[in-house]
């Protein structure tokens, strides 16, 4: 019998619902973005995000069912992002999911947001293990090793800013609007020369990342130029910054892929939409002969389809949540297989 999961995601500033068939096929995928509301604040304001989620949540649920031409009775389970994320935002999706599951007598599955980002790839092609995932977004920068479905080992993570966070902050230095990532990416591609910024390799052998030093270097550079009365060239600053981020991300991912002899490398999360990063990873792993995949843009940014894909594997493993489920803003990525 086919499995259909209704998934809900409200961990940050997108209110999303999707229906996924057998963990691999998108039947419907609805995302209501709040980016326009947060632009004027220069970033996501948690209280505003929560207010928007309440306004949108039943609309996106109805739209997901409507686009799928399905009734709740045809569903196998309800899945929702349990964490990590903004707690007030998470709670909207979780409480909506609990009611929906209760009213329709469906099992409830609480899913990890990063597991979702990784499983976005299962919607594009089958995952093969061992698999290495580079998760890069506004809130996360992690290298995750998977030996099988439901097994996650975080082998490296950022010690300070997430890559996307650094992008947004540097964009602000260059007077670019929020969200800054796409603007930096675009500016970087317009430059032929780059300002030289440091690379944060950390201790030898470490798979961890650090972007706050790089961010400070950009701020200091601008400051010094201002003091000397010189104009910075935004395209060259953008390229210098992006070159540093991309080089470190690519090199560490490559080294980990070799060490763990993975069969597949995948990129996930909003920053994996970055052209500079995609190109670098694609070239590197083509040369290395390891299959590299990155999901299409609409599956890189926050969405519920990815939550449904991850929840399908949890469903099969017998994982179930209950009506007392709470939002877990600092939820760790743990295994659901023994």
């Amino acid at each position: 019998m086919d499995n259909y999961i209704l998934a809900i995601e409200t961990s940050c500033d997108e209110t999303a619902a999707a229906i996924i068939k057998n963990g691999t096929e998108i039947i419907s995928n609805v995302v209501s973005s709040q980016i326009e509301s947060h632009k004027r604040f220069g970033g996501v304001v948690p209280e505003i995000a929560s207010r928007h989620h309440v306004e949108q949540v039943t609309l996106v649920l109805e739209e997901a069912l409507k686009q799928a031409e399905m009734t709740p009775q045809q569903l196998s389970a309800v899945a929702v992002t349990e964490g990590p994320g903004l707690v007030g935002a998470l709670l909207i999706g979780i409480n909506a999911a609990k009611v929906f599951a209760f009213v329709h007598g469906l099992p409830l599955i609480g899913t990890h947001h990063i597991a979702g980002h990784i499983y976005a790839n299962a919607l594009v092609q089958p995952m093969e293990f061992p698999l290495l995932a580079l998760v890069v977004s506004g809130g996360h920068t992690e290298l995750v090793l998977m030996k099988e479905h439901g097994s996650f080992e975080v082998i490296g993570e950022t010690r300070d800013d997430a890559a996307g966070e650094a992008y947004d902050k540097v964009a602000r230095v260059l007077n670019m609007p929020y969200p800054g990532g796409p603007h930096i990416d675009r500016l970087a591609h317009e430059a032929t020369e780059a300002v030289s910024f440091p690379r944060a390799w950390l201790e030898e052998g470490s798979y961890d990342f650090s972007f706050s030093g790089l961010k400070s270097a950009v701020i200091n550079y601008k400051h010094n130029m201002d003091q000397r009365g010189e104009e910075i060239i935004p395209t060259q600053v953008a390229k210098g910054f992006q070159d540093s981020v991309v080089e470190v991300l690519t090199a560490k991912t490559l080294r980990a892929a070799r060490q763990y002899e993975v069969k597949q490398v995948i990129a996930a999360g909003g920053v994996s939409a970055n052209k500079g990063l995609r190109t670098s990873l694609e070239q590197t792993f083509t040369e290395e002969g390891i299959p590299f995949y990155v999901p299409p843009l609409k599956l890189c940014t926050d969405n519920a389809a990815m939550i449904g894909a991850a929840a399908y594997q949890m469903y099969g493993a017998g994982i179930r949540g209950n009506l007392a489920m709470n939002g877990r803003p600092g939820m760790e990525l743990t295994n659901w297989v023994k």
């Binding site: 949540v57 039943t58 709670l91 409480n95 909506a96």
Partner: peptide, 15 residues
Amino acid sequence: VRIGVTLAKTFAWAI
């Protein structure tokens, strides 16, 4: 307030 409204809204819509 949001928890109550989310529960109530989703409940009313679901039934």
